Simulated scan of single mutants.
Amino acid sequence: MFDKQRTNRVRWACRRGMLELDVLLLPFYEEVFHDLSDADKLTFERLLTCDDPDLFAWVMGHKACEDRDLAAMVDTIVKRVKA
């Protein structure tokens, strides 16, 4: 499902317009993405289509993500950073 080309696109999408998101998303991709289930990879890929202000608000806890799957992925990313 995630061939090399698609995986490279996901990696590229981790590069954001906000440095704060770059330091969260790129290390998560490098260290965790390849071990995720296909369903979680799809969720992460979908998360990367969201706008930077929304992503930032979600990871900082300023706003709750209404999409349950995306909220769970955000929680996974935040927990990884805190570990």
Rank of each mutant, 00 (worst) to 15 (best):
M1A: 15
F2Y: 15
D3S: 08
D3F: 09
K4W: 06
Q5G: 06
R6Y: 04
R6K: 12
R6F: 02
T7D: 02
T7K: 09
T7R: 07
R9K: 11
V10Q: 05
W12T: 11
W12L: 10
A13K: 14
A13P: 09
A13T: 07
A13Q: 13
A13I: 05
C14K: 01
C14N: 01
R15T: 02
R15E: 08
R16C: 07
G17A: 05
G17M: 07
M18Q: 00
L19Y: 14
L19M: 13
E20G: 05
E20W: 09
E20M: 06
L21E: 10
L21H: 05
L21V: 07
D22C: 02
V23M: 11
V23W: 11
V23D: 08
V23T: 13
V23G: 04
L24C: 05
L24D: 09
L25F: 11
L25M: 08
L25Q: 09
L26D: 07
L26P: 04
L26A: 12
P27D: 10
P27I: 08
Y29R: 03
E31F: 02
E31D: 00
V32Y: 03
V32I: 02
V32S: 03
H34K: 11
H34G: 11
H34N: 13
L36K: 02
S37R: 06
D38Q: 07
D38C: 04
A39S: 14
D40T: 03
K41Y: 05
L42E: 14
T43Q: 04
T43E: 04
E45L: 13
L48W: 12
L48E: 06
T49D: 12
T49W: 04
D51A: 15
D51R: 13
D52F: 13
D54K: 10
F56C: 08
A57D: 07
W58V: 01
V59Y: 02
V59P: 00
M60R: 14
H62S: 10
K63C: 03
E66Y: 03
D67F: 00
D67H: 01
R68T: 15
R68L: 09
D69M: 03
L70E: 00
L70F: 00
L70D: 00
L70Q: 00
A71H: 03
A72H: 14
A72T: 11
M73A: 09
M73I: 03
V74W: 06
V74F: 07
V74N: 05
D75M: 09
I77W: 02
I77M: 01
V78F: 07
V78P: 11
V78A: 04
V81Y: 14
V81E: 11
V81A: 08
V81T: 09
K82N: 10
